[in-house]
Computed example of a mutant assay.
Amino acid sequence: MGAPTLTSSPALRAGVRDAVPFAAAGFVVAISFGISARAAGMPALAAIAMSAFVYAGSAQFAAVAILAQGGSIAAAVIAAMLMNARYLAMGLSIGPSLHGGRLRRALEGQSVVDASWALASRGEGRFDRHTLFGSSGLQYLTWLAGTVVGVLAGAALPHPEALGIDVVFPAFFLALLVGELRSAEAEAVAVGGAIVAVVLGLLAPAGVGILAASAVALVGLRRPRA
């Protein structure tokens, strides 16, 4: 019997199944993004394309917030890049679990988002790439679909804050964080990163706190010597 293919992998199917709650939450948040993007004056096609190619909720919201306040496109791009700085730490941790040369690993790494990274984690720096692909694929579809709904039907929907959608994102990340607190070291890194992110979030431009918190998270990549 031959080796299982990617599409027949039990881990891939498990990744899809485990991602359902996060994909559902992402769909709701993506509707909010679509509404916010249109309210900020972003063309419908541009908002949908942003979700299709950027696929990073916090970065997209940061960019839209800057545009809504009259900021430049360059400022919005810089803020989005800073918000995505956390993927540096996540990419370094998951890199050894991806397959192939640099180009293939870079392509596989495009599937890393917060929930898929957490669901693929097996502890001790190990990740299941099939779980990563399955969970991220489902979330991508619902994120894109939610954006389309928000962009096209946003005028007929209540404002996101009126429905309490603005609390979905914090709850989403809190659920991911709780799942990763498996050791005293992880708890210390989480607390340190949270303090840095909150303090700099109040004092510095958007995204700087995330960048600094990502640097704190890199501590978690260190392995104690025997």
Rank of each mutant, 00 (worst) to 15 (best):
G109M: 04
V28F: 09
M90R: 11
R223S: 14
E185S: 12
E124C: 02
L221E: 01
A11K: 05
A80K: 02
D114P: 14
L176V: 09
G15Y: 08
L6E: 08
L107K: 03
T131P: 01
G101A: 11
A46W: 05
F169V: 14
G125I: 08
L107T: 12
A226D: 13
V29D: 00
A23Y: 09
H130K: 05
A65Q: 11
M50N: 12
A19T: 08
T147R: 07
F173Y: 07
G164P: 15
V198H: 05
G201C: 10
L82A: 01
A156P: 02
V199L: 15
A44F: 07
L163M: 14
V77L: 14
A56W: 07
M81K: 03
G15K: 03
A212F: 05
Q69I: 10
A59G: 15
M1R: 07
P160S: 05
G179V: 10
S214G: 15
L132V: 11
I48F: 13
L200P: 06
L177G: 03
S72F: 06
W143K: 07
A204M: 15
P4T: 14
P224Q: 06
G109P: 15
G164E: 04
V216D: 06
V54I: 15
D128K: 06
A65N: 08
I31H: 00
D114H: 05
A85N: 09
A118K: 08
G154V: 03
S51R: 10
L181G: 00
G91W: 04
S36P: 01
A80Y: 03
L174P: 01
L200H: 04
A153C: 14
E185A: 14
P170L: 08
G134S: 09
L203W: 13
F133P: 00
A24K: 03
A145F: 12
S93E: 09
G137M: 08
L163R: 07
V198N: 02
A171E: 01
I210F: 10
A162R: 12
L138K: 03
R104N: 05
G192Q: 09
I195D: 00
L218W: 05
L218S: 01
P224W: 04
V178C: 01
D114N: 08
F172R: 01
A14D: 07
A153R: 06
I165R: 03
L221P: 11
A206S: 13
A145G: 05
A213H: 10
F33T: 00
R17V: 14
P205Y: 00
M83V: 15
G109K: 01
F33L: 02
S136V: 12
S116P: 09
I48Q: 04
S97F: 10
G26P: 08
A184P: 03
A145P: 12
I66K: 01
A118H: 09
V77F: 14
L157A: 01
R102H: 14
